[in-house]
Design a binder for these strands. Structure first.
Length: 406
DNA sequence: CACCGTATCTGAGAAGCCAC
DNA sequence: GTGGCTTCTCAGATACGGTG
């Protein structure tokens, strides 16, 4: 294996801890760090012959003045140059991989399908193995997988060997195929098709690897949170309300579980209220007939919504949600969706398959970022009821203005 | 109506032990 | 290395009451 290129962009070499020359790894924490280094995956370069040679040279040079390093590249201001300069100074470098800064690209429909089909445990193994297979060979040996995922000293440990055997059996044919002592990892479109995902919608998100190595409850919560993270794409859709019922229809998760996952994964929720007509313009009976018992009277003491002291009919709308993850580039999403379509077309040649999937339950657009867009939609008669909002500094609560188009 | 917090119960997951 | 058996933990569902 050659000397790997260490870059900050892919986040695989996030942190380095520089120890003084005289400090030998004798303390407990040092031993822990050494243990961490020893069980790091080989592809990360720490078992690289070239890198080992450099480390040995630097170790030997500790007793000598560090003048031999002048030939090392100086231009590239990156972790590579940082590493080189530290090596050149003869300092001992202990990589402390901080999995919270290392991320994997995850597609929300795939994560939700894992939850829906009860394959979150095997799915996270697949994601971890895809990450650990950085050579991109598409396979890892069973022994490697066992060492990384079950060794008690491994930072990638997620379960015992006994459980891993069960999981490997469960994921066979969906996430991987076994053969010649290797796990052949399936590509994203194949896995998506096996899980019943017809299209990879929304933007992919960057899921911290630390999430994948946490408890299964945390993994599940973040798989759910990818839905909100991939949905908060633009300023216009960021605050778009969505009912618990709709989320349940999409994710197949009951409301209480949604709340539990949101709390666990750090999804931010925002309450929304709609302001309707003035109280004296519509009777209580009429508004109750239209809106049910959820309607209440809102008095505008400060005159923020019109004449000071006016009272309006108001009601609560569904919440808005902001996911905890950063979005990443779409990558090969378009090509993968073509592959997925091909896979499903092949699968549809038999009997009893519908050629068209039902549309999602939230196709009629109802919420707009400002009044101009809402008025434009109003002229097109996009929906019977429209809501529009204005930018707010306080993110906990948002008011929406009601617009009737009939 | 839509949402939230807490308590409680149930069942699946995880892991240890051991024989083959 | 595999699989059966057992035990224990914890995730997930449900119920209930409360808020705006």
């Amino acid at each position: 294996m050659g000397l790997p290129v260490l870059t900050a962009e892919d986040g695989r070499f996030p942190d380095y801890v520089v120890l003084p020359h005289s400090q030998s790894p004798t303390t407990n924490s040092d031993r822990e760090i050494t243990a961490v280094i020893q069980q790091l995956p080989t592809h990360m370069g720490w078992e690289s012959a070239s890198l080992t040679a450099v480390l040995r040279r630097s170790a030997c040079s500790q007793s000598k003045p560090a003048h031999h390093s002048s030939h090392l590249p100086q231009k590239n201001i990156s972790n590579t140059s940082c590493l080189n300069s530290k090596l050149a100074k003869g300092e001992t470098i202990s990589p402390l991989p901080s999995p919270s800064t290392v991320t994997v690209r995850v597609y929300a429909p795939l994560a939700l399908a894992m939850l829906r089909t009860g394959q979150a445990t095997t799915g996270r193994i697949w994601l971890l193995l895809r990450y650990l297979d950085t050579d991109g060979r598409g396979w890892v040996t069973v022994e490697q997988a066992r060492n990384w995922l079950t060794d008690k000293t491994s930072i990638w440990r997620v379960c015992g060997w006994r459980q891993l055997r069960n999981l490997l059996r469960q994921g066979e044919g969906v996430f991987w195929h076994r053969g010649n002592g290797r796990l052949w990892l399936c590509a994203i479109p194949k896995v998506a098709a096996a899980l019943g995902v017809t299209q990879l919608t929304g933007r992919p998100i960057a899921l911290p690897v630390s999430v994948l190595t946490a408890g299964i409850g945390t993994v599940r919560a973040h798989f759910y949170a990818t839905f909100h993270s991939s949905r908060t794409a633009s300023q216009q859709t960021r605050h778009k309300p969505i009912a618990r019922e709709t989320i349940a229809a999409i994710t197949h998760l009951p409301e209480r579980t949604q709340r539990h996952y949101e709390h666990k994964a750090g999804v931010r929720t925002q309450r929304n209220f709609a302001i309707g007509k003035k109280v004296n313009s519509v009777s209580a009976h009429e508004i109750a007939w239209e809106r049910g018992t959820a309607v209440f009277e809102l008095k505008d003491f400060l005159g923020k919504h019109g004449q000071q002291g006016s009272t309006y009919w108001a009601w609560q709308l569904p919440n808005s949600y902001v996911g905890p993850h950063k979005q990443t580039g779409r990558g090969r999403q378009k090509r993968m969706n073509r592959e997925l379509a091909d896979l499903f077309m092949q699968g549809m040649t038999g009997n009893g398959r519908s050629a068209h999937t039902p549309p999602p339950p939230y196709t009629t657009r109802r919420y707009y970022a400002n009044g101009r867009l809402a008025a434009k939609a109003c002229t097109r008669r996009a929906a019977n009821e429209l809501y529009w909002t204005v930018p707010y500094k306080n993110g906990r609560l948002r008011l929406w203005y009601f617009l009737e188009t009939k």
